[in-house]
């Protein structure tokens, strides 16, 4: 169909994400806002693609998705390793959002917020009791109030799949410190999650 001039058209060049990243590293905060939806979409798409390709029984690694999305979206030749680290940081956070968004929606449906109330089977009940990303998200938020750095380190590792070096570079700490941050953070979270279950 021929229609009016296409709207919302951003001329895409391979360096779009790249340039955004570069922009952001120069201090342009709004570049971040532009990046997030692109990454969001990419992560979802990759997750879906992965799921259909692989055996449905095996687990999907979010880190793998983040890696892949990076490869697809950014032009490595133009970026420094610091930019890459930033990408991962954003991607990690975005990944977290993707999961939270979904979990919220899913929970809303289960509690009868929607029109259709399905009878809960025993299995559903069991699932509801198991901690999910929402619980993790809550726990992470609580951790952040206590110790923000640890919370970020966890996020970068588990949602972003970053290495300890990368985490160190993003957070500005030594590798050994990263290790210690993670260890305590993990323990704290695990405790929180098991407490929430009681």
């Amino acid at each position: 169909m021929s229609g009016p001039t296409p709207v919302n058209v951003i001329r895409k060049d391979p360096g779009n994400v790249t340039s955004l990243l570069l922009d952001w590293s120069k201090g342009n905060q709004s570049a971040l806002e532009c990046l997030v939806p692109i990454i969001y979409e990419e992560l979802l798409r990759l997750a879906r693609a992965r799921l259909s390709r692989e055996n449905r029984q095996c687990t999907l690694q979010p880190t793998a998705l983040v890696h892949e999305s990076y490869l697809r979206l950014a032009d490595e030749t133009k970026l420094q390793w610091q930019n890459r680290a930033h990408f991962y940081a954003i991607a990690a956070n975005t990944m977290r959002r993707v999961l939270i968004d979904y979990a919220r929606k899913r929970n809303a449906e289960k509690r009868g917020g929607g029109m259709i109330i399905t009878l809960q089977t025993g299995m559903d009940f069991a699932q509801e009791r198991a901690p999910d990303c929402l619980a993790l998200d809550e726990a992470l938020k609580r951790l952040a109030r206590v110790d923000e750095r640890k919370s970020r380190a966890i996020e970068l590792k588990y949602f972003g799949g970053m290495t300890t070096e990368e985490i160190g570079s993003v957070l500005g700490i030594a590798v050994a410190t990263v290790g210690r941050e993670l260890r305590l953070g993990q323990a704290w979270l695990r405790r929180e999650l098991s407490r929430a279950q009681e």
Partner: peptide
């Protein structure tokens, strides 16, 4: 944590 995230991710997908 790993498992939790992975499971949820699968659900999302």
């Amino acid at each position: 944590i790993d498992l939790l995230v992975a499971n949820d991710l699968k659900d999302v997908a």
